Computed example of a mutant assay.
Amino acid sequence: MASINPYLNFNGNTEEAFNFYKSVFGGEFLVLQRFKDMPETANVPAADQNKVMHVALPIGKGNILMATDALESAGHTVTFGTNFSVAISPDDEKEAKHLFNGLSAGGQIAVPFDKAPWGAYFGMFTDKFGVQWMVNYDENPRR
């Protein structure tokens, strides 16, 4: 069955926030990836290249707190109170497609479910109740 974890969006201070969370929860980041680390983001403005594209901090048994810097240069805005999504990590591609199609029915798809630049299958949407979701299936998970 899929695991469910919170995914937070910040206005450029993701690294500061996650260093704080790490100081409280302990542990080490599973990944801290910057926009400059991905070839597909070569067109990201120089001022945004060092911002955090994805960070993951394990908390407790099987929980992972994840986040990104929302880039205004890419048209993203952060509205506090709705600056998070529920991230689902299914066990296989079939389950991922089923969850994406089922939960997005009647909602608004922001990113269609397809192969992503990081190699996983990914999709993002807001369901018909206004809840933001991300589905990410990776055969070789790093989180």
Rank of each mutant, 00 (worst) to 15 (best):
E93K: 14
P58F: 05
N136P: 03
N83W: 05
V52H: 02
V44L: 09
V44I: 15
F18R: 02
F80Y: 11
D114H: 13
F18Q: 07
A70T: 15
L103P: 03
A120W: 05
P39H: 14
A116G: 10
D114L: 03
T41A: 12
N136Y: 00
T14G: 14
I4L: 15
M134R: 03
V52E: 01
V24Y: 09
Q33I: 09
D138H: 10
E72C: 04
Q132T: 15
L32V: 15
D92C: 10
L103G: 05
F35I: 12
M38K: 08
E16M: 11
T126D: 11
P6D: 15
Y21I: 11
N140G: 03
K36D: 11
L71V: 07
P58I: 04
G123I: 00
A67N: 11
F113Y: 14
R142A: 03
N19M: 03
F35L: 14
A17R: 05
M66L: 09
F100V: 09
V131A: 07
L8I: 08
I64Y: 07
D92S: 08
T77N: 14
K36W: 04
L30A: 12
G26A: 12
D37V: 11
A120T: 12
S89R: 03
A17M: 13
V52I: 15
V111M: 14
A105H: 05
T68S: 05
R143D: 07
A96M: 07
P39C: 11
F35Q: 10
G123T: 01
A116N: 03
I88A: 00
G123L: 01
M38D: 13
Q49S: 13
Y21F: 12
L99S: 11
E95I: 07
Q49H: 13
P39W: 07
V55R: 06
P39N: 10
D92A: 09
N83L: 04
I59F: 11
V31S: 14
T126W: 01
N101H: 11
P39F: 12
A47Y: 01
T41Y: 15
P58G: 11
D114V: 01
G130R: 06
A105C: 06
Y21D: 10
F35C: 13
F125I: 08
L57C: 14
N101V: 04
A110T: 14
A17G: 06
I88L: 07
N136S: 13
A116Y: 10
